[in-house]
């Protein structure tokens, strides 16, 4: 069974990295994984997104028509992807920047004040980690510990223990916010 995710926001919000960390967590958890970025000259300042598929069987398409979970970090992302989400799917909304709720009634809208939470932790740039914690809780495909392990693996060598710790706290806050 495929679990499918779209992480979307504007360039710089860290949606590409959030998706990569989920992909790494899935890999370490023994799942089949694909991670597909939108790439191109439009990314800087424009919109960015990536698609992640986690599965217990080999994955066919990394291109997903209808994601089971959407992380929308800004309004254009919610506007663009809400209609594509699978029925019964989860939409994690960055309520720090998006004032509306989901319009559809057949999906779960989960409001998380990603930027506010990140600022309260002293690290405004960790909003993507709050988002990741929230979507991990909402879908339950991989344990939060696997995501923390992925953070250590992918970021530990670059910025050391302090950054890892801030990101872990942001993950926890996001996880507990839904």
């Amino acid at each position: 069974m495929d679990s499918t995710f779209v992480f979307a926001g504007f360039g710089g919000q860290g949606v590409i990295l959030a998706g990569k960390l989920l992909a790494q967590a899935g890999t370490d958890h023994g799942l089949h994984v694909t991670w597909l970025p939108s790439y191109g000259p439009e990314m800087r300042g424009g919109t960015a997104n990536c698609t992640v598929v986690l599965s217990d069987e080999p994955i066919g398409s990394p291109v997903v028509d209808n994601p089971g979970a959407l992380v929308a970090m800004n309004l254009p992302s919610l506007d663009r992807f809400e209609k594509a989400v699978l029925a019964e799917g989860a939409v994690v909304i960055n309520s720090s920047l998006i004032s509306r709720k989901v319009e559809r009634e057949d999906i779960r809208g989960l409001a998380v004040a990603m930027n506010d939470i990140a600022v309260s932790l002293g690290s405004p740039r960790a909003a993507n980690m709050v988002a990741l914690g929230a979507v991990v809780k909402a879908t339950g495909v991989v344990p939060l510990d696997a995501v923390k392990g992925a953070v250590k693996k992918m970021l530990g060598h670059k910025a050391g223990a302090k950054l890892v710790e801030i990101n872990e706290r942001a993950l926890d806050e996001g996880y507990n916010a839904v």
Binding site: V33, T34, W35, L36, P37, Y39, P62
Partner: peptide
């Protein structure tokens, strides 16, 4: 381009 850019274990 898709195979080049995407990631998989």
């Amino acid at each position: 381009g898709m195979l080049g850019q995407m990631m998989e274990p």
